[in-house]
């Protein structure tokens, strides 16, 4: 039984179709990511799955239970970090964790949470006095306090520093190891590629593709690129005939080769430079990523 089943979900705000007939399943122990530009409908989709908003149409099963019918039970096993969480201003960090823990039949200890979130020093601070990243960590804490089986994280890495992000990634991987299910949204390609078993690419309320990141990239037959600086007196046609090259672009002295076999292309490029004795500087090899994929799929950048 999948952890989450969504069938034909739609949601409209006035004339805007925020979610447009989407269906998918998320397996137990999977880390599933939603990618898409602002306004794509990621948050709306997540919040409908969390029971916070009502969809117009469609059915949702969480852990095999009907969301609309067994919501009170489902609440016990899900953990949610909202895109922006605000709780009482004048509540202290430890009080907030304790309070939210008290709502559940089963919850984790305060000390464990403070350690996990690296918020020990801030335990006595008012929530309103926390920095943005610290608040983000606290809201992650509120999501995990009930030791949930299914975890929804809406842009969990927004606004946190690199160290905290690695901490977050470690926590998410730990969750997977414990066979928990994590559903997240992100704007960071590395994050999705690094963490997610599968991603759904959303645009204008629709899922335009959904698979493991590498598979998606392979399916779209995206090319790796090799960028370098060249000297003036270079015969362009000789580059074109290098092994694996399918396209090339030269702007001023910046050359970009697109290749199916970047390693082979690279070594033949080196050979060529030795033979014809011209210099190749500042070589950068770029594997195709989700950003490119998105560009390919929609013709627009992800952060537009």
């Amino acid at each position: 039984m999948p952890a989450i089943t969504v069938k034909n979900l739609s949601k409209r705000y006035g004339s805007l179709q925020a979610v447009d007939n989407i269906s998918f399943e998320i397996e137990r122990g999977e880390i599933f990511g939603f990618l898409g530009p602002n306004g794509a409908g990621k948050t709306t989709t997540l919040e409908i799955m969390e029971g916070l908003r009502k969809g117009d149409e469609g059915t949702i099963l969480i852990d095999g239970k009907q969301l609309s019918r067994d919501y009170q039970e489902i609440k016990e096993i899900i953990g949610v970090q909202l895109q922006s969480t605000s709780i009482y201003n004048k509540i202290k960090v430890w009080e907030a964790l304790k309070l939210f823990g008290s709502y559940y039949r089963h919850s984790l200890s305060l000390e464990h949470m403070l350690d996990l979130l690296s918020l020990q020093e801030k335990r006595n601070s008012y929530v309103e006095r926390l920095s943005g990243g610290q608040q983000q960590r606290l809201s992650l804490g509120l999501a995990l306090i009930n030791d949930p089986r299914i975890i929804f994280l809406d842009e969990p890495s927004a606004g946190i520093d690199p160290q905290a992000r690695h901490n977050l990634w470690a926590i998410i991987r730990q969750m997977k190891e414990e066979n928990r299910t994590v559903v997240l949204t992100t704007h960071y390609m590395e994050e999705a590629q690094e963490l997610c078993d599968r991603v759904a690419i959303m645009d204008k309320g629709r899922i335009i593709d959904m698979d493991a990141p590498q598979t998606l990239i392979r399916k779209q037959n995206l090319k790796s690129s090799i960028q370098f600086l060249v000297s003036d007196h270079l015969d362009i046609s000789s580059l074109k005939n290098l092994e694996g090259v399918c396209d090339l672009k030269i702007v001023n002295k910046n050359a970009t080769l697109f290749s199916d076999h970047p390693v082979k292309t690279l070594s033949s490029l080196m050979d060529l430079s030795r033979k014809k004795s011209f210099r190749v500087d500042q070589i950068v090899l770029k594997e195709p990523n989700l950003e490119d994929l998105f560009l390919e799929l929609t013709g627009r950048g992800l952060r537009e």
């Binding site: 916070l52 609440k75 899900i78 949610v80 922006s84 009482y88 201003n89 939210f100 709502y103 809201s139």
Partner: peptide, 16 residues
């Protein structure tokens, strides 16, 4: 004003 600032929203997700 709690509601206005979205400070009650988080409670909706708990069994409270």
């Amino acid at each position: 004003s709690y509601r206005e600032k979205g400070q009650l929203r988080r409670f909706a997700l708990t069994p409270l």
